[in-house]
Computed example of a mutant assay.
Amino acid sequence: MQPDIEIYVLSCPTTTIVRWISSVFTVIKQHQPSSLCTKVTASTGTHEFEITILEQAAGKRFTSVWFDSDQTPWENDCACAQEAFQFLQCEVRCNAQSWDESTEEDPDLWWRINDHEEGPFIWN
């Protein structure tokens, strides 16, 4: 089980991302601490947690969506990315494996989903 989930969405408005989040979870609260950051408090029914949506997190075109919980409906980042792509219909990227400082995994190996392909690639 991953301690959290994070995906990166290409050129997708925050309002659309929040609409997707609302289709998966109960949104309890939403606020905007800065012009590029939106915080959402969401619930799975028994568990409340924070979701941070940060625009321009990876260059000017990618928005980070970070679920600060180990109790999401997804087994890993890739499963979340696949569901996000289905709803958002824009490119979604995520780390190809669960990140851990102590492993030998390549931190530049990512998973990309778009209209043309789904699979691993090096994002550096």
Rank of each mutant, 00 (worst) to 15 (best):
M1S: 13
Q2T: 15
P3T: 01
D4S: 14
D4L: 10
T14N: 06
T15A: 13
I21T: 05
S22N: 14
V24L: 08
T26W: 05
I28W: 02
S35G: 00
L36T: 14
L36Y: 10
L36A: 09
L36H: 10
L36M: 08
C37E: 13
C37N: 11
K39V: 14
A42H: 03
S43D: 11
T46L: 04
T46D: 07
H47E: 10
H47T: 11
H47F: 11
E50R: 09
E55R: 12
E55S: 12
A57P: 05
A57C: 07
A57S: 15
K60P: 06
F62N: 03
S64F: 04
W66R: 05
D70R: 02
P73G: 11
E75P: 00
E75D: 11
N76L: 10
N76W: 11
C80A: 15
Q82S: 06
F85L: 00
Q86V: 04
F87W: 08
F87K: 02
C90Y: 03
E91G: 12
V92A: 07
N95V: 04
S98M: 08
D100H: 11
T103F: 08
E105R: 10
E105S: 14
P107Q: 04
R112L: 08
I113T: 12
D115V: 07
D115E: 15
E117R: 07
F121W: 14
